[in-house]
């Protein structure tokens, strides 16, 4: 592959090349990177509201986000499925994008990971070129444009469904955004979950979510919602105490993004299991 660097005088002095978007730069220089037309002749089918891909590729399942007193919790299970088989037990679907924002993705694993990587570079690229960080709203809109660009792929079943959450420095509060396949962007005031087990997780959170919960209780809500989703949805992975695989839980506050350690998650899950054994 030839490197894009053409430092010819015209190239580096070209005025219309001065956009600050890496996504734009990549699609200008490597249009093939985004080639998606004619991928398959088949079209995806709808099965109970879920888009079923004609391509058998790994799919990530349930992710969620909820607001609490000091910020947002973003969590996801660790399973990726390929049709009826488990493709991956330890996949990470919740990723920090920069110091103050997190993306959680459900959908076709490959395009999902690619989008996370692209968004990370996109934000960093903008910051370096402009000397300023993008606003929270700006980051969310950029992601919406990227999802919209993925629409041809989504039409073939390679859907990318993210939840984007982060700390808005201007408003001094945390925000959650959800998206549809066409790039529609919606802000969520309380909680949201997406993916094959998303509906179950939402149902679970609906019962136990309260506004302005303290951190500890909010983490419990997230873990319980994922646990419920894993019980009801075959594609969502429950905690695997034998192999030591636990859901990913990230906490965003004014101070930045932090992750819960496996030890902490193990303790919490053991408590949860003990509670459910007592029937409570």
């Amino acid at each position: 592959m030839e490197l894009p660097l053409k430092f010819t005088p015209l190239r580096c002095l070209e005025f219309n090349d001065s956009e600050s978007s890496f996504h734009q730069l990549l699609s200008n220089r490597f249009p093939s990177h985004f080639a998606s037309k004619g991928l398959t002749n088949q079209t995806p089918t709808l099965d109970g509201g879920q888009i079923v891909s004609p391509l058998l590729v790994p799919h990530g399942t349930t992710v969620l986000a909820l607001r609490f007193l000091d910020g947002v919790i973003v969590a996801g299970d660790r399973r990726a499925t390929e049709g009826y088989s488990i493709a991956e037990r330890r996949i990470e679907k919740v990723h920090a994008v920069d110091e103050t924002s997190v993306i959680a993705i459900a959908g076709a694993a490959g395009p999902c990971m690619e989008m996370v990587r692209l968004l990370r570079v996109e934000l960093e690229h903008y910051e370096k070129l402009e000397g300023l960080k993008l606003s929270m709203e700006g980051k969310a809109s950029k992601l919406a444009a990227m999802i919209k660009g993925n629409l041809p792929m989504a039409m073939q079943g390679l859907v990318v469904m993210p939840i984007f959450a982060g700390y808005d420095v201007k408003r001094q509060s945390c925000r959650i955004y959800k998206y549809d396949v066409a790039g529609g962007q919606y802000e969520e005031a309380e909680y949201y979950a997406i993916g094959s087990g998303g509906k179950d997780a939402r149902g679970s959170m609906k019962k136990i979510f309260k506004k302005d919960l303290p951190r500890e209780e909010a983490i419990t809500v997230a873990i319980e919602a994922l646990y419920d989703a894993a019980e009801a949805d075959v594609a969502t992975g429950g905690p695997d105490l034998i192999r030591g695989i636990f859901p990913t839980v990230k906490v965003i506050t004014k101070e930045g993004v932090s992750s819960l350690s496996d030890d902490e998650l193990r303790t919490r899950l053991n408590q949860l299991i003990a509670r459910s054994q007592q029937g409570g």
Binding site: L3, P4, F7, V121
Partner: peptide, 17 residues
Amino acid sequence: ENLRKAGIRHADMKGFL
């Protein structure tokens, strides 16, 4: 400034690819 931006583009592109 133009050279700076071209450098950032070069580096980010290489790092991504």
